Deep mutational scan, measured.
Amino acid sequence: MAAGGDHGSPDSYRSPLASRYASPEMCFVFSDRYKFRTWRQLWLWLAEAEQTLGLPITDEQIQEMKSNLENIDFKMAAEEEKRLRHDVMAHVHTFGHCCPKAAGIIHLGATSCYVGDNTDLIILRNALDLLLPKLARVISRLADFAKERASLPTLGFTHFQPAQLTTVGKRCCLWIQDLCMDLQNLKRVRDDLRFRGVKGTTGTQASFLQLFEGDDHKVEQLDKMVTEKAGFKRAFIITGQTYTRKVDIEVLSVLASLGASVHKICTDIRLLANLKEMEEPFEKQQIGSSAMPYKRNPMRSERCCSLARHLMTLVMDPLQTASVQWFERTLDDSANRRICLAEAFLTADTILNTLQNISEGLVVYPKVIERRIRQELPFMATENIIMAMVKAGGSRQDCHEKIRVLSQQAASVVKQEGGDNDLIERIQVDAYFSPIHSQLDHLLDPSSFTGRASQQVQRFLEEEVYPLLKPYESVMKVKAELCL
């Protein structure tokens, strides 16, 4: 049975990233139509530049190519590739079939990587351009969430054990800070992308030097003109047959890092959902379990974690691919890159769409948070109580021993009897502590235990987050809708 299948058929496997999760716009960027249309555009740009620099290419040939950029006979191309065992030459023939007058000058002087690699770089750039505003929107939604809850005390956790208090907004800023680093890295790697350009079979530009009869300047002009037509500021000066596969490492490393950030955020949300302090959106008709109707599973956060793990592992592909590119190139890269580049971007696209949807509907339960604080705060307040007693004339050592005994009794009630923490009640009825009984409410005010959390939130948002989001103001209103 021949390899390949009808990918629109229910009898043929289709990647869930495309069929179930990723956005239509990201799927289109990695589609065959987008790819092969870009090949034709690159052939047109090459012909236009070659004509401008004096090669015998007519206006009629150029116009014929322009008129057929979208006229792609995919069936013919597939048949040609089956016959020739070469995808680029299959599309040269297919393009030439609908451009008979231009057929002889299509791909003039070029090698397969002229269309293959340059198209990949265009796709990487455009895919990054799709991700950047999506990530900015996630940051914006979380920034709104953090600002609104900047002063809401909550129990902090280290080692997932109760620690000092923080605020809900401050905790959210930990998430935002990681995503801001990801946004900066995505922008950097996007701006650092260079075009492969017009380089020939081993990167020496020998074929173009021959076409222009040894004119170095025209060869350099050709490279520059096509690079500018493709919208790049610069091209690699040095290439082998391909652009260095280190570029793929750079791009997928940034995406993998984004995956790590999203995994951490969504894990926190899942843990908070278990504590009943916070939940992701839950639709009115949504079913959490087929057997347990009360369940409210954090399905979206779980999906993000599941896909983020996949995204983090994909960076190993370009690392290994770059390491086995012998001399000017081997074909070890080809099949692998067809999979890992598309999957990385479709996965990143999915987790950003999902995280935006989550961040637009996060639900906080202040009463649950308050109750958990009441359970733990008495123990945390013991040092403040000791200091207040010393100020009232008591002995630190005597007070410490009193607190120690009462704390152990209260802990026994919590752990052995399943009761509430009654340390404060014990202190309130103990005559030894009568000098500070009137101060206990103040000493137990949760806001006095959150330090500068709310001020940190305000400063972080104003100095770091809002300036970073400013270039994306025009796209901030787009909502994230999930079908599944």
Rank of each mutant, 00 (worst) to 15 (best):
K35N: 13
V92K: 02
V413S: 12
H91Y: 14
L84M: 10
Q320N: 07
K75L: 09
Q455T: 10
E64C: 04
S474H: 14
L346A: 10
D430R: 06
M181N: 09
Y114N: 02
A453E: 02
R196E: 09
I269Q: 04
S395W: 06
L255R: 03
V475S: 15
R396S: 05
R33F: 02
A127W: 00
I106L: 10
S23F: 06
S448A: 10
K218E: 05
L132T: 07
A127E: 09
P471H: 15
F28K: 11
D420V: 00
M225R: 08
V247K: 14
C99Y: 07
E64Y: 12
S434Q: 13
A410R: 01
W175H: 02
K170H: 14
V219T: 10
K295V: 00
A381E: 11
Q63T: 07
N68A: 06
A136W: 04
H400L: 05
P435E: 11
I62N: 06
L252C: 09
E213N: 06
Q409M: 10
P281V: 11
V478M: 15
L128T: 13
Q409I: 02
F95K: 02
D192R: 14
G394A: 06
S323K: 01
W175L: 04
L42Y: 10
T330N: 12
P133F: 10
H263G: 06
A18H: 11
V226R: 03
L69S: 09
I105V: 10
E481K: 13
S261A: 14
R426L: 03
D117H: 03
R188D: 11
E70G: 08
A3T: 14
A392G: 15
A410T: 03
S9C: 12
D117K: 00
M299V: 04
K295T: 00
K264R: 11
R14W: 15
T201S: 06
D317N: 08
D129N: 11
N68T: 10
F30P: 00
L272R: 01
R309N: 06
A256W: 00
T267F: 15
T111Q: 03
A322K: 04
A78Q: 15
D332Q: 03
N71K: 08
C483T: 13
M292Y: 00
L271A: 09
S301E: 09
I385V: 11
E401S: 09
A260L: 02
I358C: 15
P10C: 12
E462Q: 11
A388W: 06
F195I: 14
M65I: 02
H93W: 05
F327C: 06
Q428K: 13
E213I: 15
I427D: 03
C113D: 00
C266P: 02
T321L: 06
F195S: 08
T38D: 01
D182K: 04
R33M: 05
R329H: 07
Y13A: 15
C99L: 07
R234N: 02
F236N: 07
L275R: 09
Q408A: 12
A342E: 00
V364P: 12
E417S: 08
T52A: 09
R309H: 09
D144F: 10
L124R: 02
D87P: 00
K82C: 14
V189R: 10
F232G: 03
R396K: 13
C305P: 02
L186D: 06
I436H: 03
Q241D: 03
A291E: 04
K276A: 06
V457M: 07
L155E: 01
I385T: 12
I339D: 06
S434E: 13
I72A: 07
L152S: 08
V364F: 01
D144N: 11
P162I: 06
I373Q: 04
L193S: 11
M278L: 09
F145M: 15
S290Y: 04
R196F: 08
G214K: 09
A78P: 12
V315R: 04
L142V: 09
A431L: 11
Y21L: 11
H442M: 15
C173F: 04
S23T: 08
K264C: 05
E328C: 14
I237E: 08
K170Q: 10
L209W: 09
D117M: 03
D215Q: 08
S207R: 04
T166I: 12
G203W: 01
G393W: 05
S15T: 15
A431W: 03
V115R: 04
I123N: 09
L258I: 09
I403D: 01
E302H: 15
E64N: 10
D117S: 03
H97F: 12
S454P: 13
G288F: 00
L484S: 14
I351F: 11
A235G: 11
K264Q: 01
I249N: 08
A230L: 03
L211M: 10
P471K: 14
Q177G: 12
T202H: 06
F208N: 05
P467Q: 15
